[in-house]
Design a protein around this nucleic acid. Structure first.
Length: 579
RNA sequence: GCGCUCAUAGCUCAAUUGGAUAGAGUGUCAGACUACGGAUCUGGAGGCUGAGAGUUCGAAUCUUUCUGAGCGCGCCA
């Protein structure tokens, strides 16, 4: 939207020698000043580039002013403070914003990259040992919104789920299922039969019933070796199906599921280890005992280690257990090698905050395996405190008082869940009160935004019942010259920034900026609406002047397009009426 | 003991990644409709950004030392 203005600033700066080649159009900030009195827009480029160009901010600011004043959209330029360049914009510029939005519609915020890049977004990746729980809900929403954002800036995105279908937990799952299977034949199973790490949830009873139906007593009173593998496979398959259904409830669909055991079958661990060996990053060694930690059974032991300290980790990481089996991390080496081989050089992974110790070694692994060519960004999300009207809900797997993702979605709906999960920064713990989130109040930012949308739809309904069906071509072609009120300008200016909001949210991997931005737009709209109550000239529908109406409706229509775009990114449905 | 993350109005959160006088909502006080949907809007009060020091034109943001909270630290995944 601001290309010509950015060009003007860029041209001014380009006249100065740039020894480090730090100057780029992308890095020129154009923003709204704190207060309207300073102007419509400002840039801090004079100060920001002063160091790199080795020219004082004042000199740069003057040069920017000279250049900006030549721009036909810019009407007034002032230099303030240490080198802020404030300027005013001709109103016709904002009117063109409306035209552009209506013209591009859904693609208004879309950035078409010349060289389409691929990115892999891995999220949820829950162990296939039971239904998804509440933490996964936040993970799933973050991952899917981040994916949507990257698609907006022209990336080809793969939404991926890593299945931990190996190891002891799956064995425990199979054993737990076997107990339920026996129980289905009327055998008494006491609670003590379930070890600490086994799964005593009700959901395995259904699977057991299915096994009985299809296989009768084929596995009853048999050696473990005769049923274990079958039970593992069966259980994992069914758990995954359940997980897929849970995700579907939240509007999340994965593009790819990667299986840990399949990667191991393909000898990818060996391949990863041999790559690292060639780079001299694998050695047999003894890890130091962690200081200050009391662990009685600690004994020094030589292990196969990955030299992750070479890539910024704090200590080297074991890839083989003392019994010679691969560690979990070895599997992750294989998995990330697989991603690299599928030619992703950008990856994002969403993990719970309890994985914080894992970031450095993952980055190290990707760095080493790709010879520095690939990059992985990891976003940790904090937990959610669930409340029932202000009272915390205690959860424990043992007592069975355990909220699943499905419970949450069934109770408050997909849209509210998604909005709540994504409207706060990911690294902050959030409160989720079952009672408050469904109230029609400002405690729920989603209703504020939805209400703005519904009001816009209401205006269109009203117009059409009086004057007949609206013609989009007419909205596009009508003169917008009378959109001059401050409230109208503020709204148009906010809409002008929308594509930049989207791309900056994507690049920073901060999806919460989208709901924030929508709330700002909704606020400006509500404000304009109320202004029309006192000042009838600002009403959207003017009964005696058709072009006035069309101009105002075109502003509403472009606002509607942007809100819809935001809703689509967040993954929620717009409401044309509040119900 | 070491590492990662967080700390902003009474409360819930922002702050375009180093920009101007730190902004919204809620609660509180005072206002606005014979309603294009009042589920809204306008205004007041409310802050030494947990504490100290440093970096520079400029710090909530970067560095560092504290304080407090959460999480993690070989043979779990």
């Amino acid at each position: 939207m601001f290309n010509t203005i950015r060009d003007s600033i860029f041209n001014a700066l380009r006249q100065f020698p740039d020894p480090e080649n730090r100057l780029s159009k992308q890095n020129i900030l154009i923003d709204k000043p704190k207060t309207q009195s300073l102007g419509d827009l400002y840039t801090n480029a004079a100060m920001a580039f002063s160091k790199f160009l080795n020219v004082s901010p004042q000199v740069l600011a003057k040069s920017i002013r000279e250049s900006l004043i030549q721009n036909e959209s810019v009407t007034e330029v002032t230099i303030a403070g240490a080198g802020f360049v404030n300027f005013k914009i001709d109103k016709s510029f904002w009117h063109k914003v409306i035209d552009e939005i209506i013209l591009k519609n859904k693609d208004y915020s879309f950035t078409n990259l010349k060289n389409r890049k691929s990115i892999n977004v891995e999220f949820v990746s829950a162990n296939p040992t039971g239904p998804l729980h509440t933490g996964h809900a936040r993970n799933a929403v973050l991952g899917s919104v981040i994916s949507n954002l990257f698609e907006k800036i022209g990336y080809s995105v793969t939404r991926e789920f890593y299945i931990n279908d190996k190891g002891n937990q799956i064995k425990s799952l199979a054993k737990s299922l076997y107990l339920r299977y026996k129980e289905a034949f009327g055998m008494e199973i006491s609670k003590d039969a379930f070890d600490e790490d086994m799964y005593c949830g009700e959901y395995l009873k259904e699977l057991a019933a299915e096994l009985v139906k299809n296989y009768q007593d084929a596995f009853l009173n048999k050696e473990e070796s005769e049923w274990l593998e079958f039970f593992k496979k069966f259980a994992v398959k069914r758990m995954l199906k359940g997980i897929e259904e849970d995700l579907f409830l939240l509007g999340v669909k994965m593009d790819k599921y990667s299986s840990e055991s399949e990667l191991c079958d393909e000898k990818l661990v060996d391949e990863a280890v041999s790559i690292l060996s060639e780079r001299n990053d694998i050695y047999e060694g003894i890890l130091p005992r962690p200081k200050g930690m009391i662990s009685e059974d600690w004994e020094e032991r030589p292990q196969l280690l990955f030299k992750s300290t070479k890539y910024g980790d704090d200590i080297d990481r074991p890839i083989k257990k003392s019994d010679g089996a691969w560690t979990y991390f070895a599997g992750d080496l294989a998995y990330h090698l697989d991603k690299i081989k599928r030619s992703y050089n950008q990856m994002v992974t969403i993990l719970g905050a309890d994985h914080n110790g894992y970031i450095k070694r993952l980055k190290a692994a990707v760095n080493a395996l790709s010879e520095g060519k690939a990059d992985i960004e990891i976003r940790l999300y904090q937990l959610i405190n669930f409340l029932e009207n202000g009272k915390p809900i205690r959860m424990s797997k043992r007592s069975g008082n355990f909220i699943t993702l499905r419970d949450v979605v069934n109770r408050v709906g997909k849209d509210i869940t998604r909005y709540m999960m994504v409207s706060r920064r990911h690294d902050i713990a959030i409160d989720f009160d079952f009672v408050k989130v469904i109230e029609f109040s400002i405690e729920n930012p989603i209703f504020y935004v939805q209400y703005a949308y519904a009001r816009i739809c209401s205006v269109f309904r009203n117009y059409e019942s009086n004057f007949g069906k609206i013609d989009i071509e007419e909205l596009k072609n009508c003169s917008k010259a009378q959109l001059t009120d401050e409230a109208e300008i503020s709204l148009m200016r906010e809409l002008a920034f929308w594509p930049e909001q989207v791309s900056s949210a994507a690049l920073a991997i901060e999806p919460h900026r989208i709901p924030n931005s929508l709330q700002e737009i909704a606020y400006l709209f509500h404000s304009l609406w109320n202004k029309g109550k006192n000042n009838t000239e600002l009403r959207f529908i003017s009964t005696n002047n058709k072009n006035d109406s069309l101009a105002r409706l075109s502003l509403l229509y472009s606002t509607k397009i942007v809100l819809e775009d935001g809703f689509r990114i967040i993954g929620i449905e717009p409401m044309s009426e509040m119900k």
